[in-house]
Simulated assay, not measured.
Amino acid sequence: MIEIETFRKIALSFPETSEQPHFEKTSFRVGKKIFASFDSKDNLVCIKLSVIDQDVFSVSDKTIIFPVPNKWGKQGWTYIDLKRVHPNLFIDALKTAYCEVAPKKLSDLIQPDFGKEL
């Protein structure tokens, strides 16, 4: 189980991330782009992934990580159940969401391009 304060701490540890209200939710942004939001009513995090990454993360258990069930889900928006997700899986998914929307210079700080040495 991931507590909201743990989620907040991880999200805000990414370069140039800010926390801002988004309707009745809390959003985490890099620049003006949202990479994650929190719905306290349902204890769900919603993250922005590519459709391919969404499929990869959802394959382990579609009751823990799953596409938003509407047109937003078809664009990569993905729910994570904080009560049930494994911490390492959550951190990987949140990093991936950050890198999906962050400028390359910032995402490289989180996930360096290992192919540069080749």
Rank of each mutant, 00 (worst) to 15 (best):
K71H: 10
F57Y: 11
M1A: 13
F114M: 13
P87R: 12
T96R: 04
D113Y: 07
V59T: 14
I65G: 02
W77C: 07
V56M: 09
F57E: 07
Q75S: 12
E100K: 13
I52T: 11
K33P: 09
V101T: 02
I52Q: 14
N43F: 12
P67D: 05
Y79D: 09
M1G: 14
K105R: 13
E5N: 14
I91K: 14
K9P: 00
K95M: 02
K83A: 14
E3S: 12
A11C: 15
K104T: 11
P87E: 14
T17W: 07
W72M: 12
D108V: 03
P103T: 00
S107N: 08
S40D: 15
R84N: 13
E16G: 06
S58F: 04
K48H: 06
S60V: 09
K9Y: 05
T96M: 06
S13W: 02
G115Y: 12
E117C: 08
F38Q: 03
V56G: 04
V30C: 13
G115S: 15
P103M: 00
V51T: 13
S60D: 12
P87Y: 11
V68M: 05
P67V: 01
L49A: 10
H22M: 15
I80F: 10
F38W: 10
Y98I: 11
K104F: 03
I4L: 10
Q111T: 14
R8Y: 05
I64G: 11
E5H: 12
S18H: 04
D42V: 06
C46M: 12
Y79N: 04
K74P: 02
S50A: 03
D81R: 13
A36G: 12
L109N: 01
S27R: 01
